[in-house]
């Protein structure tokens, strides 16, 4: 392993963890709105959330560049408060979060829908305000789904390529994540060995993440039926 390859691995982990952690609260909120909310424009929200899943990643990346770039309407405002996305690792994390978001919301939404609303109304009659009902009944009961959603988002972030490279380019040490590094190595003579090493690492990280989520979900599930 060369130092450059290590940098790519570390950067990928940082980007994926940041993307997952930062989008998780919003993901749970949106999933709850879609599962339980009754409001005008719900289908529209559903479509917007799912867009990154159906659009070509390059299109998503380009839209991010247009909106969050230094000249973009959102990027310009954020720059005033010191938040810069373009050509930074934070931009890679944003791209990964957007791409992983539909997968995350989908998993969480399904698990919220599986929570019996009768339990929620029972909690209400016992004096719990809606936010408390969510925190003490809905959230604990849909936790396996939240974990699954987070892992899906993490895995998607580890493999995200198109949107990231379009939005923040492929700068070693800043925005060159594992897939970009592998892609770069395949483009240069003699890079095959490095590409293979990174590929194996990528496979290993995905498997560890999946196993970890299985274990975690099982422990949460076991606690729920413990006698």
């Amino acid at each position: 392993m060369t130092p450059e390859e290590w940098t790519a691995v570390r950067l990928s982990l940082l980007v994926a963890v940041t993307a997952t952690a930062a989008s998780l609260p919003l993901g749970v909120a949106v999933a709850w709105l879609l599962a339980r909310g009754r409001f005008w424009g719900k289908s529209l929200l559903d479509v917007v959330v799912h867009l990154p899943l159906i659009m070509p990643p390059v299109v998503t990346g380009y839209l991010l560049l247009v909106l969050f770039g230094r000249r973009g309407p959102i990027g310009e405002v954020l720059e005033q408060v010191g938040i810069v996305f373009s050509f930074r690792w934070t931009g890679a994390a944003l791209a990964c979060a957007v791409m992983g978001f539909p997968l995350m919301v989908r998993a969480i939404r399904l698990s919220i829908e599986a929570v019996d609303t009768k339990l929620e109304s029972a909690a209400g009659t016992l004096g719990a305000a809606p936010l408390w009902v969510f925190a003490t009944v809905t959230l604990p009961l849909c936790l396996p789904g939240v974990i699954a959603g987070a892992i899906l988002c993490f895995a998607k972030s580890m493999g995200e390529f198109g949107a990231t490279i379009t939005f923040v380019s492929n700068i070693p040490g800043e925005t060159q994540t594992l897939p970009s590094a592998i892609y770069t190595l395949t483009q240069i003579p003699g890079g095959d060995a490095g590409a293979l090493r990174l590929t194996l690492i990528s496979v290993a990280i995905s498997m560890v993440a999946l196993l970890g989520s299985e274990l975690l979900a099982r422990r949460v599930g076991a606690r729920r039926v413990a006698t």
């Binding site: 019996d116 009768k118 339990l119 029972a122 009944v137 604990p140 009961l141 729920r224 039926v225």
Partner: peptide, 9 residues
């Protein structure tokens, strides 16, 4: 409730 609705967790 008829179906007790105890919190399973």
């Amino acid at each position: 409730f008829q179906d007790s609705r105890l919190f399973p967790h």
